[in-house]
C-alpha cells in the first residue's frame, strides 16, 4: 500500500519535469552511425560490389526477408545476380550485418522509408547498392581470401606464399 502511494507521489512529481519527446519531424533526432535503419549494400575501396552472395545474411535473417542468387563473374568471383530485401518484413535487427563476412551489407541511420504501396517496400539490388564503402573504408574481401581474381593471382592474398610448384623436388 505504501509502495503504491509512493509510486503515485513519484509520478506526481513528474508534473514539473520537462517532456523528453523529440518533436520529429520538425526536430530531427540524432542517430548514431551504427543506428540500425535502412539496409544498404556497399562497395569495396576499388568500387566493386562487396557482396559475394554467400547467403549468410539470408540464413541469419530471423524473418527470412532476404533472398538472393549467386552468380559468377568472368574471373570466377562471386556476386549476387539478384539481391532482394522485403523491407515490409524487415525488423531492422542487424543480424544480416553481423553475419556478413565481407562488410557488404550494412544498416544505416535512415529509417524514413514509408510507402503507401507495400510493394514499394521490396528493394532490389539496384535500390540497395550504394557507391561507397559505408562504415568500413578499407576492407576488400578478395584481397584477404585465397581465391584467384582478375586483379589478384594465386598467392597474392594476405599472408600467402607464391603457388607451389608440384614438380619441384626442393623441400
Amino acid at each position: 500500500m505504501l509502495s503504491e502511494l509512493r509510486t503515485m507521489w513519484e509520478v506526481l512529481k513528474h508534473t514539473f519535469t520537462k517532456a523528453e519527446t523529440v518533436e520529429y519531424p520538425e526536430q530531427m533526432p540524432y542517430l548514431a552511425p551504427r543506428y540500425r535503419g535502412r539496409i544498404v549494400l556497399t562497395r569495396d575501396p576499388d568500387g566493386e560490389e562487396r557482396c559475394v552472395a554467400c547467403n549468410l545474411c539470408a540464413a541469419a535473417c530471423p524473418v527470412d526477408c532476404i533472398a538472393l542468387q549467386k552468380d559468377t563473374r568472368e574471373d570466377g568471383t562471386w556476386y549476387p545476380e539478384f539481391f532482394r530485401i522485403n523491407f515490409s518484413r524487415c525488423i531492422m535487427c542487424g543480424m544480416c550485418e553481423e553475419a556478413c563476412p565481407t562488410y557488404a551489407i550494412q544498416l544505416t541511420p535512415d529509417f524514413e522509408m514509408c510507402e503507401y504501396d507495400r510493394q514499394n517496400m521490396v528493394y532490389e539490388k539496384e535500390h540497395l547498392l550504394i557507391n561507397g564503402v559505408g562504415k568500413y573504408p578499407d576492407y576488400n574481401f578478395y584481397r584477404v581470401s585465397g581465391m584467384q581474381t582478375a586483379s589478384k593471382d594465386k598467392g597474392e592474398a594476405l599472408n600467402e606464399e607464391r603457388p607451389i610448384d608440384t614438380r619441384s623436388l626442393l623441400p
Binding site: 509520478v11 506526481l12 513528474h14 508534473t15 519535469t17 520537462k18 517532456a19 523528453e20 519527446t21 518533436e23
Partner: peptide, 8 residues
C-alpha cells in the same frame, strides 16, 4: 498522462 510520463 503525458505530463506525468514526461511526454506531450
Amino acid at each position: 498522462l503525458g505530463v506525468w510520463q514526461d511526454r506531450y
